[in-house]
């Protein structure tokens, strides 16, 4: 359990760093140039790590299903939704709604065991935990200064 939580914390910290770096790029370049660069480098880095750790095994894709080839397109959906959300609602509302939705769908995926992941039974305790986290997000996001929110860009969330 500790490993899982630690890895999630590493992932979240790196998302934060990546968000800041990407928004620096997005200050100068367009949203889609930034997205293309970010995903291109993500591919290159994953490929190099893959070669380093797996060698030729990286190219062994015999259990590949057709839809796996299309899953990367979800990232493009993420950017499109956030760009439009930010434009229509502004960052504070967009990020609060987005994080709430992220947690809500997480709970749904866990309790239904969709896509063949191990099912985590839905309990009242889980619902309570998620609701308190969402309340925390709202308190955090709506207490932050508005200048800070203004620099948030959609490409932050591209990975």
């Amino acid at each position: 359990m500790i490993v899982g939580l630690l890895f999630a914390a590493i992932a979240g910290s790196l998302v934060s760093l990546q968000n800041i770096f990407n928004s620096k790029v997005n200050e100068r370049a367009s949203t889609w140039s930034t997205t293309t660069l970010v995903l291109g480098l993500g591919f290159l880095a994953s490929f190099l790590f893959g070669i380093a750790f797996e060698g030729k095994q990286l190219f062994n894709l015999q259990d590949m299903k057709t839809w796996y080839w299309f899953s990367g397109i979800i990232g493009v959906g993420v950017v499109t939704c956030i760009v439009n959300g930010m434009r229509l609602l502004g960052p504070t509302y967009t990020i609060s709604i987005m994080m709430t939705s992220q947690l809500g769908f997480a709970l749904l995926f866990d309790s239904l065991g969709w896509l063949g992941l191990a099912q985590v039974p839905f309990t009242f305790k889980q619902l309570l935990g998620v609701l308190i986290i969402i309340a925390g997000i709202v308190v955090f996001k709506f207490s932050g200064s508005s200048e800070k929110q203004a620099v948030v860009k959609a490409t932050k969330y591209v990975s």
């Binding site: 999630a8 935990g129 986290i133």
Partner: peptide, 13 residues
């Protein structure tokens, strides 16, 4: 699981 992972990711982020 997904819920706990996303929750910790959001906090760290």
């Amino acid at each position: 699981g997904v819920t706990l992972s996303i929750a910790v990711i959001l906090i760290a982020q």
